[in-house]
Design a protein around this nucleic acid. Sequence first.
DNA 1: CGAGTATTTGATCCTGATCAAGAACAGTGG
DNA 2: CCACTGTTCTTGATCAGGATCAAATACTCG
Lengths: 243, 243
Amino acid sequence: MGFRSMLQRSKVRDFEEAVLPPGTPQASRLVFRSLGTTVNVARGHLIEPLDGAERQIIFISHGTVKLVGHVGADREQIVAFAFDGELLVLSVGTQTPYELYAVTDCQLLIFSAGKLFRAAAVSGPAATAILDRALLAIDRSREKSVLLGRKTAKERMATFLVSLSDRIGEPLGETISMTLPMSRRDIADSLGLTIETVSRQLTELRECKVVDTCGRSEITILDVTRLRDIAGTGAAFGSSGSI
Amino acid sequence: MGFRSMLQRSKVRDFEEAVLPPGTPQASRLVFRSLGTTVNVARGHLIEPLDGAERQIIFISHGTVKLVGHVGADREQIVAFAFDGELLVLSVGTQTPYELYAVTDCQLLIFSAGKLFRAAAVSGPAATAILDRALLAIDRSREKSVLLGRKTAKERMATFLVSLSDRIGEPLGETISMTLPMSRRDIADSLGLTIETVSRQLTELRECKVVDTCGRSEITILDVTRLRDIAGTGAAFGSSGSI
DNA sequence: CGAGTATTTGATCCTGATCAAGAACAGTGG
DNA sequence: CCACTGTTCTTGATCAGGATCAAATACTCG
């Protein structure tokens, strides 16, 4: 089936290579290998936490996952996407219930957070590497709060595209191309908007030649500078315009 | 002045007591003591990162601080509050610029994140304790994303009060009282609303006898269950009503 | 008690949600 | 390779929650 062939077609990331610092001793590597559980999940499926009530750390060997928070029955908010080679923290028993879903077919490596930390603590640099990832997750989540709390629909869309291009884009000269792994609904659920608004914003960006799309999931950023300006990220004095 | 007397009036938390696990060896404790820089800041003032471009971990010995993210010149979003005894991660050089402000007069203990982790890595349990705090920060930040992305003004206000009561409330029988350390503007900037909307929501909650206020900053939660229901937190089937 | 700021309340406006078709796409089987 | 079908996406019309603008009121602190 398509699932297996896809996994073979493109690269599967290696946890040790992607996360552990180069000097990690062989003994620690073996410990990490023994702690992680490899899981394959087909797109659209829920990823169940391994055992009972414990925080887990999930390494994405291949594919894209989304972490979804729920408000009541029908409203949902995607709290994080994670792509190939990234780590994701999955807490259980939090105030709002969260669920992890496979956005594309994917291969994961699941750890108990406690065990992983105890193993990492043995080798200082490994602990620091994992902590650093955790702090990166905090930064990303805070960016998201700013986006959700204070940005307009247009700014959200632009911010999303800029951030995605940093994570999964393929530079092609002045432009950046990427294949969106997620649907419009996923984008909307991530940006706190509706699919209709996402669609409209994308249309407007296409009309002002900032991006170009081909089919549902191919997108090319034509004017990176302009898109960053719209995203309202960083530079208070945009590169296109004042001074 | 009022500053000093306030510090004396109520308790100042101890980093070792609040963060480090009980069994932490004396040698490690001494290392931590040598790493932290104590700083006093008067309310309203900006808290400057200590040295140059490095991530810092800040322990709040006493008082309340807010971490503010900016979009353009005039829009701001409070990404986190931190109260007595809590830890806060301050990243520098992120996409959006963040600033840390003292909401009340406060006393802080500032660490370089790198140095703190390296010290913590020596004693496994200490590393785990700090990592645990980092994961808690991720959980809080994700809750905030759900709130900002999908909750209504009323739900946000209720969620805010519930969360605050968990962190700084004083239970009095069936009710919970607290002194809000922050202004309406701060609440609005934290909830992604305007001060007017915050004020109106508070008025409505007062009118339906869910809370009671006295002056600007004294607030009592009269009906905790009801408030949690409104917050839309957890229980899909609220305790007041269906089954 | 008075001055200045913070908060509340009221009236109107606007962005993005909702409701409703219609068009484009992907996957299937002939 | 193409027609068929169900889904996803786009576009249009209307609606509503919260923002904005404007003023009155209540605190706090000297």
